[in-house]
Design a protein around this nucleic acid. Structure first.
Length: 312
DNA sequence: CTCGATCCCTGGACGC
DNA sequence: TGCGTCCAGGGATCGA
């Protein structure tokens, strides 16, 4: 559920509370959501969290300093000394139910706290994730770059041309494209539905068939919605809270998400929910008319054209 | 290339 | 009160 605005909210909180702190120890409990658990235990102790950034739905804890262990031995691998220092980061994806926040050590561990980073100011940065749909990975240099390159444009920064090009590059439905992190990074189910409603576009429409004006409306509305949601510190569905444990407020502004059967705020029609691209999609059947696909048969019967069934 | 199906996982909602 | 069942959802993966 944490999408771009929620992740941005958490990132801002962490940037102001744990940036600059050094990690002393790493304690892992369940670790099946971590790419390489041993790498965390090996590389993180002794490192400083230089800054915290958002990348799509990922959080990047940029690391500085030297790992505690390599300060002792391993000097024989001297070839690395000539290589310029490469970027290193702890990548964190919150999945559906992930939380990353600083705690005082006397606060009891909750049932699903799987990772604890002991910090140099006496606090603990704890990762909690009931469903473990999240992901955590220590990545450096080329591996980090390669990981980040997989993702598409940031929806807050993408230009008109780039956005149009990306949407038109495939024959997928617009909902699928908005959710595809290699097209745009950071949009999830809530904000995809909200943006499509605002732009009056049916989620099952083929992206490549959207008119340039529709695409530009969609890009602008998506951006506005995301920015507004960031202002309100995200949507608190399930149990999203920011790094300080405070819920967001944007869920009060949802126009379609979670409003199945209720009246459209624009026209009063009942909001519908269908499955598109395997995800539940909320939309107004009146404001967001279905794509033309259905009208083909209607046209055929009307004009009584001979071509009976589909011939490719 | 794009799709649906399936899996991961647990808590919450719901029915009885 | 306590079951069982279904569902949510981001993302990886596989087969159609």
């Amino acid at each position: 559920m944490p999408e771009l605005p929620e992740v941005e909210t958490v990132v801002r909180g962490l940037q102001s509370t744990v940036a600059g702190r050094r990690i002393l120890t790493v304690a892992l409990r369940k670790s099946d959501f971590i790419d390489d658990p041993a790498a965390l235990e090996r590389e993180l102790p002794g490192r400083q969290i230089e800054r915290v950034e958002r990348f799509g739905k990922f959080m990047l804890l940029r690391l500085a300093g030297v790992p505690a262990q390599s300060a002792q031995g391993l000097s024989t691998s001297a070839s690395s000394s000539s290589i310029e220092p490469l970027a290193e980061a702890l990548l964190v994806h919150l999945g559906m139910t992930g939380h990353l926040a600083p705690h005082f050590p006397d606060q009891p561990l909750t049932k699903h706290t799987h990772v604890t980073f002991e910090l140099d100011d006496g606090r603990e940065l704890r990762y909690t994730d009931a469903r473990r749909f999240g992901r955590m990975a220590y990545l450096a240099g080329a591996a980090l770059a390669a990981e980040l390159e997989r993702f598409g444009a940031d929806p807050l920064l993408v230009t008109k041309q780039d956005f149009a090009g990306r949407i038109r590059a495939s024959r997928s439905r617009i909902k699928a494209l908005l959710l595809d992190q290699t097209v745009l990074r950071g949009v999830g189910n809530i904000y995809a539905d909200e943006a499509l409603w605002k732009a009056k576009i049916h989620p099952a429409k083929i992206g490549a068939r959207l008119a340039p004006a529709e695409l530009e409306t969609l890009r602008k509305e998506l951006r506005k919605i995301l920015l507004r949601a960031i202002e309100l510190r995200g949507s608190s569905i399930s149990d999203f809270v920011d790094a300080g444990g405070i819920p967001g407020d944007y869920q009060q502004h949802h126009k379609v998400y979670g409003r199945e059967g209720q009246k459209c705020f624009r026209c009063g029609a009942k909001i519908k929910r269908i499955i598109v691209a395997g995800r539940s999609s909320h939309f107004c059947p009146h404001c967001q008319p279905a794509p033309r696909v259905l009208s083909r048969s209607r046209r055929k019967t009307k004009r009584n054209q001979p071509r009976a069934t589909s011939k490719r």
